[in-house]
Nucleic acid binder design. Sequence first.
DNA 1: CTGATCATGTAAAAGGTTACATGATTGG
DNA 2: CCAATCATGTAACCTTTTACATGATCAG
Lengths: 193, 193
Amino acid sequence: MPRTSKTEYAVLGLLAMQPMSGYDIKTFIAGSIGFFWQESYGQIYPALKRMRANRLVTRKISKQKGHPDRHIYEITPAGRERLSEWLAADLEAEPVRVELLLKMFFGTMAPVEDIIRNVECLLKQQQSRMKIFNNVRKHEMPQYQDLPEYPFWLSTLSFGEHVTRARIRWCRETLAWLKNHNRKKTSRKIRNQ
Amino acid sequence: MPRTSKTEYAVLGLLAMQPMSGYDIKTFIAGSIGFFWQESYGQIYPALKRMRANRLVTRKISKQKGHPDRHIYEITPAGRERLSEWLAADLEAEPVRVELLLKMFFGTMAPVEDIIRNVECLLKQQQSRMKIFNNVRKHEMPQYQDLPEYPFWLSTLSFGEHVTRARIRWCRETLAWLKNHNRKKTSRKIRNQ
DNA sequence: CTGATCATGTAAAAGGTTACATGATTGG
DNA sequence: CCAATCATGTAACCTTTTACATGATCAG
């Protein structure tokens, strides 16, 4: 089991759905799995090159007038094999880095207002995420209802909703005590004057 | 506002608590913020070197018998300034990559058993995380109760609990339908024989 | 006429992990 | 006696982002 980069698995998976160009892959990712996975051209094109050299994909060139040629990549049986191996393999624990929690941990080193602003910032990020999820669930998901992929796609959305909801709740709770904390300090200051 | 690497902020924050060696920093991180932040020696030592060159920290050498000398780093006023700037700065949106969701998205390309195993794997990871949180909350946190840092440290723990609980719930829900899905397919197979 | 979209890629830089090199002490 | 702990750091490697280079078309 050769340890291929995760980018290659993402690309193989998409190509297993249908043949695509590097450009298509980028656009497709942004419009579907973008909320939990992203890739840049600097990753996609070299990955396609490597995988072609390793016979996991083949390439066809489709000429166009005006626009540059499209390089269409197709997955090979060896590519599907590699994809299956990865899908069957056990999940490794992923390291996480949450910058806001680092700031919270050092919370006493800054004015409470700064920490409040940071938590509010996370809250806004998560709320706008939630709005997107709501929209996708109502207006985009129904069109896939009859595909066999539908329940799997829905489950990725559901994961996003669960985690985002949890983060929003934490932000609200945290803001409540931070503001209380702030109020107490302020009134103490006033008393001391 | 020069954009320093996040490692430097983590290190500055720890040094603002007390002077430490690179080794101490590594050990401290593992035993406190390890669940949302990790650093390797390959990051810490070069960061200390850079920051010393930039006068954000100073170094004292403490001789020991038997063991190698300890290089104790102390934060400077310029270092505290840099730390404050970061604490006050707005949070940037962080890109995320969740490998399990990538697998879920391609769920129809693998036997359901493989997907089930993956979700169970995540569930186990999250459950063992939750056990650690429970332990920390009951047996480690109380000793810090009177420190001004206490509520901030507790809030980082609470974040972990919220998100982990959400992920555990998602795993349970997802396993329920995956197993149902599997049962239906199996019985169909049996009928077709 | 200006900026977005279509379309390919490369190169440099940043960020991070793992392995290496060194070597005494301490606990099982 | 062997493995872990203490303690410093570097080097090679892998991954990822951002900037660059090129250039036509199309919508406002």
